[in-house]
Write a protein that binds this DNA or RNA. Structure first.
Lengths: 344, 344
DNA sequence: TTGTATGCGTTATCAT
DNA sequence: ATGATAACGCATACAA
């Protein structure tokens, strides 16, 4: 079976549970007990076996394990184009937890706009036989997908800005309230004439951020006029266009909140073109606290989501419940605004 | 075995090869042949079985498959902190290929500076039993790790700026020559007084980029003086410091090449602080063509690596060779410079 | 507390 | 061209 290629040197022969059992002079059943932390093992026996396992580089074959126990020890991650920083952080958060439980992380980048998104994701789950999946926004906002996942009996943790039914674990990132906080900061610092760059309104996150910000200003008795609101599509260019429009049409504007960092970067550029100095003439705040925030000139203040922690939480829940889901659970996460140069 | 939790609705019963065999009125051996594209099957029988598989949502259990064939159908990705864009692109590139071959991608973010990096990576490979791994820079630059991986008999594809021995497939990204191209562009556009911001010289990539750029200017007969070279650590702040120093000490400088986009962003900021207009007074070029490049003001020209394609190539090789490595192979990849506003 | 034996869903050897 | 059947490495019902 093994190849005879040139690289096929004496690679350490694969040990099995049988080898360990023989070395320890016990049956494989006992070794299995030790591997699975069964309490019904003589302490001394357990220690002996454990030390043997330590000294050899034995690692139980998770495929065999999964085959016997009907689990895969795999967690899936389904996402589409979050900014890179988010992706890295989430993955690390998940792996942090996985490593401690001998689980692995399988990733499935997908295309939110694809017609066959749902069958694709389901097929991924079937093929890989992951024990559960973590779904990131904006994919997580797709209710039909969540429903399909649920119907397939696949444990899933959704991370989104609003509760999405059908996710057994729903981690709701409180973007609306964070956006309201941005409004408060603006208002508190004396910005009464402000602009808002919305994301595409078919994204729930965009809607949340919008409502949070606009409603707050209404409560302050200073609702934004139509011409102080622009809709972008989360792209840099759309942010530039929106910013350019807002600023040139409303010379009195002293602050702009953009629904993500990309668009905020576009606003900064528009301000530059229009000779507005940030933050002197115009304060700007973005959303995501992505990689770029600190690299822009001026550095961008932004709303941060603790993605690594969220990844860990989701993974921990999936592993702990081990497929036995007794009831759905919703958690709410509050966000923090990272202040940099663009909002003094 | 199955839980009785509330979510445990009628989930589509799992079909096995036995079910398919029965439906088709053949033995499982024949179904297995079809699944593995064996030529020794009657065309008609094959079609019948295939259509049955299509109509049911049967998907072979890769765990059982792996157990029997001693493969996992898993590809591992080992990396540490490339910029997020790189990560997403590489993962998509790998998954593109994996999906077509019923493989999955398992990720292992690690810490390059960790003392136990090597045992950690090896343990990851043992535990997950991946069939092969892709190692991204800068982790791939660690020769000792490559050696250990090789000694463990684990098929691996390394992506780095220089050939690293012991990687059966070595994809060398020609960063030196790309950097020389940047030098040529500078020189061709009349920039003779230029600055260079190097990465930390214990990174091979930093060394390559440095050599490429500096050597080129030597060949032009315009070698850079010491005070036109600064060393950063790939961070934004170090780029700012380096840029500030270079510009203030050398008022005549008309172009700066920074070894990555983060530092280039810092240079842009330094230029801004020192009232140099980019690109009018100062041209700037970065490296990575990361997410930020297009979002900076002015937009940053940068050297791009085709990470998605590289991911695909690496995965394809790992899957095609299927563990049977007859000889080591080295491929060279040329890069492209993406021109934006910062280099007119 | 420990061991025996069966089965998980495939692949692959050996028949036929 | 097709079919029994023994692995593969482990978990677990059942015995002891």
């Amino acid at each position: 079976m093994l190849s005879s290629g040139v690289t096929d040197v004496e690679m350490p022969e694969k040990l099995t549970i049988v080898d360990i059992a023989r070395k320890a002079g016990v049956s494989i059943r006992t070794v299995s007990r030790v591997l699975n932390d069964s309490p019904f093992v003589n302490a001394e026996t357990r220690d002996r076996i454990k030390s043997i396992i330590e000294s050899t580089s034995y690692s139980p074959n998770s495929r065999a394990r999964g085959l016997a126990s009907n689990r895969s020890y795999l967690i899936g991650l389904v996402h589409d184009d979050p900014n890179g920083l988010v992706l890295d952080q989430v993955q690390r958060g998940i792996v942090d937890v996985c490593a401690a439980h001998a689980y692995e992380l399988v990733v499935h980048p997908c295309n939110l706009k694809a017609r066959d998104l749902i069958p694709q994701v389901l097929q991924f789950a079937r093929r890989s036989r992951v024990d559960g999946i973590v779904v990131l926004p904006p994919v997580s906002e797709n209710g039909a997908l969540a429903q399909a996942i649920h119907a397939a009996g696949l444990p899933a943790a959704g991370i989104a800005s609003v509760p999405v039914e059908d996710f057994p674990l729903m981690i709701v990132v409180n973007e609306r309230s964070a956006s309201a906080q941005v409004a408060s900061m603006f208002y508190g610092k004396g910005h009464t004439e402000v602009g808002f760059v919305s994301g595409p309104l078919d994204y729930r996150s965009a809607e949340e951020r919008r409502r949070g910000f606009l409603d707050a200003f209404e409560r302050f008795g200073a609702p934004l006029a139509e011409d102080k609101i622009a809709e972008g599509d989360y792209s840099f260019q759309s942010g530039f266009d929106a910013g350019y429009q807002l600023i040139s049409r409303n010379p009195s504007i002293s602050a702009i909140f953009a629904s993500n960092d990309r668009m905020a970067a576009g606003v900064l550029k528009a301000a530059f073109k229009l000779n507005r100095r940030v933050p002197h003439d115009l304060a700007v705040v973005g959303f995501d606290d992505s990689d770029v925030a600190g690299m822009l000139t001026p550095a961008l203040s932004s709303v941060a989501r603790p993605m690594r922690q969220l990844g860990s939480e989701a993974a921990k829940w999936l592993i702990d419940t081990a497929g036995v889901i007794s009831k759905h659970e919703t958690r709410h996460i509050d966000l923090q605004i990272i202040l940099r140069e663009s909002l003094p």
